[in-house]
Design a protein around this nucleic acid. Structure first.
Lengths: 222, 222
DNA sequence: TTTAATTTTAATGCGTTGTTAATTAAGGAT
DNA sequence: ATCCTTAATTAACAACGCATTAAAATTAAA
């Protein structure tokens, strides 16, 4: 699950990154407001953690710009107690949650889980297709009524494919959804995980579109 | 997917072309602003990557002229950090995204994908004609209800012809859509693929217009 | 620390695909 | 009718993309 952290404080940022990675997030950490603004135009994060107090650009501007682009990604705002204008705490700010510094890492994580859950809950209760039931909330898969144990990466790949049923998903796009920008995957990791998925489920479930990507088809034949 | 790169720096351009081709784009590279302006009046691209700092013509003028012609092609602008007038960063410039030099090739590619995605997301209509159903999203062809397996090049050629039903498409134009300008195809590749298409579908489907090109006719006779 | 599980890397093999090139057929022009 | 040009057909070959496997590296768990 991809997460963007915008935090200029080195020490705090470092700790957050470590903690969030431990929670299983693929974290991109930016210390620069303008870069963050740019990064968000790519729009491929599931969560954003945003410090309002940045040196080069007001965090609120980033948030405003984000919402102006109709980007609904859940945003958690970090602020120091005395720098929060009251209006910010209102609903119109566009943020989904606030944490006041100093805070406990555990609390942030719990709130993030809640955010993610709430966000999934709206749009994707569970996806069902060809005998597969995928429940994002519990992170579990059922295939023809039987539980199937998937590793994290396998789950993420399947999720991505299943939320794009009928559309070809390029390998690059899959990689984007699994990793953060700068992490270089120069090998065939995705292929390998696809292979494991086919093994655990049905080989014909995921169709290869040579030179293009992978797809889970709509139709019932294969 | 055709992409126009306008970049005067030889070294940078060379690298970009290589990288973009690797991503599967058919890249046309122009180092000259005026030529680019002309090219954009004639050709149509799915993406444009534009360096603002050109020797003979301001990149912004190209962009302005493009938008003045109601051309909505997504444009990614490349700029050096200190040469970006602030106004350029505003929404009114007409660009869809910016990248500040120096940049990572990976980032540019990721952003381009995002641009293309945003742009195409609206409508991916399937084309239907004479019993053939072509679905770009799933990359599949049906002929009289039966699935037909096509290779990538075959698929691309058929796509191009089917989105130009009733119009003759010259071989040069087909080659352009499959390859970039300067990539040399000195043989009859297109003919060969046309041949395979006719074999897999109906020989009479694609009519040869001698000395001109190929066409899929409107009418029901052949 | 040891063990197990997960993830990544790397190497291999195979089938598909794109391209080339040579030959045959067809269409126009003289 | 013949010649010349253009297109169709076929086969051969090289290159590529993907699947698969095993092993290494990393991470989590005991």
């Amino acid at each position: 699950m991809r997460l963007l952290l915008v935090e200029d404080d080195e020490i705090l940022g470092d700790g957050l990154v470590a903690g969030l990675k431990m929670e299983g997030y693929a974290v991109d950490w930016l210390t620069n407001g303008k870069l963050a603004d740019e990064a968000l135009k790519i729009n491929s994060y599931e969560l954003i953690v945003l410090d309002l107090n940045l040196p080069d650009m007001d965090g609120m501007d980033i948030l405003r710009a984000l919402r102006a682009r109709k980007d609904e990604t859940p945003v958690m705002v970090l602020t120091a107690k005395d720098t929060v204008p009251d209006r910010v705490l209102g609903l119109d700010s566009g943020a989904d949650d606030f944490v006041i510094k100093p805070f406990e890492l555990d609390e942030v994580c719990a709130r993030l889980r809640a955010l993610a859950r709430r966000n999934e809950g709206r749009s994707v209760p569970h996806i069902e297709h060809k005998g597969i039931i995928l429940e994002p909330a519990s992170h579990q898969i059922t295939y023809h009524g039987e539980k199937v144990e998937l590793s994290q990466k396998e789950f993420e790949i399947l999720s991505f494919l299943m939320s794009n049923i009928g559309r070809v998903v390029s390998r690059a796009r899959l990689e984007e959804s699994l990793y953060s920008w700068n992490s270089d995957i120069e090998s065939n990791t995705v292929e390998v995980h696809i292979h494991y998925l086919r093994k655990k489920l049905e080989p014909s479930l995921i169709r290869t579109v040579r030179g293009v990507g992978y797809i889970i088809d709509n139709d019932d034949d294969a």
